[in-house]
Every structure is written in structure tokens, then in C-alpha cells.
Amino acid sequence: MFKKILVPVDLAHLEALQRSLTVCADLARHHGAEVCYLGITATTPGTVARSPEEYEQKLRDFAAEQGKVHGQPTSALCISSPDPVADLDDHIIEAIRTEGADLVLMATHLPRHLDAIVPAHGGKIASHTDVSVFLVRPRESSK
């Protein structure tokens, strides 16, 4: 059903992504789909890496590690941005097009009042693309 799954990841918060990564692995195995891990990093030094090049290398290593977990082909797409927080949605939507992904799978938080002012990325992506979007919420216990 799905040939290529796009998974936006933040390497600084991998612990929060574990549930969505597990779901992704299951789906990739089930559909025999390729998984593209998308990282959007600042052009300035950050917690994970001190340059976009270093971030890209870490993302490639991460994708390769995940490939070993689920046994499906993986790729890594690293986009550097001077303002990653503001440009995140646009970069994901653009990556869906350039990578030819037919499913986007991403972790998201529980609904909150602040969403009215700062909307969650998942909702924005779903309303601006025609591919399927799978949002994975944290466990109930982690509320």
C-alpha cells in the first residue's frame, strides 16, 4: 500500500520519538516500504551538531541504524535552515514532494490550548498535502 514513508525526526529528542519509530518500523516491514528520515537543522551550531554537515552525517548514521532494526531500505534527508522552528512545516511539505513519499509518519504531542496560537505541525502538514499522514501520540501514561 505504501512505498515510501517520510519520517521527520529531531535527533535532539530521540527519546520522545521512540513510539513513532516503532510504529514506523512495523509499517515499513508490513508494506515493504522504504523509509526516509528527514532532519531539519539550524545553520548555527546546536545541541546535536556544530554544523549542518555534521548533523547530516549523524542523520545518515541514524537512518542506517533504523534500517538494521526493521530491515527495510532507508535514506536520510537533511535540510538546513536559518530558522528551523518557523520553516519546519514548509520543509516537510517540500520534502514530501521531492522524495515522492506516500505516507508521512510523525510523533506529535497531546492536544493543548496553545495549539490555537501555535498549531501542531502534524495538523498543518495534513491540511497542506494530499498524502496520508499518520500522527503518533505519546502513551496515555506519559500525559
Binding site: A12, P45, R50, S51, E54, Q57
Partner: peptide
């Protein structure tokens, strides 16, 4: 600390990790 990147740039070798002194929290869901 943070390893050096690829490419011709000359990093300063420091153990400091950006954000290591930061406080990350979610007060009132924010």
C-alpha cells in the same frame, strides 16, 4: 564533547555542549 564536522572549517575544541546549561520544561503545557 561535540565531535568535529566534515568539510574545511576549523572548529574550536571545547567540551561544552550547546544547550547543556538550559532548562527544558513544559509549564502549563508550554
Amino acid at each position: 564533547g561535540v565531535p568535529a564536522p566534515e568539510g574545511p572549517a576549523n572548529l574550536i575544541d571545547t567540551d561544552y555542549v550547546i544547550g547543556q546549561d538550559n532548562v527544558a520544561a513544559s509549564p502549563l503545557g508550554m
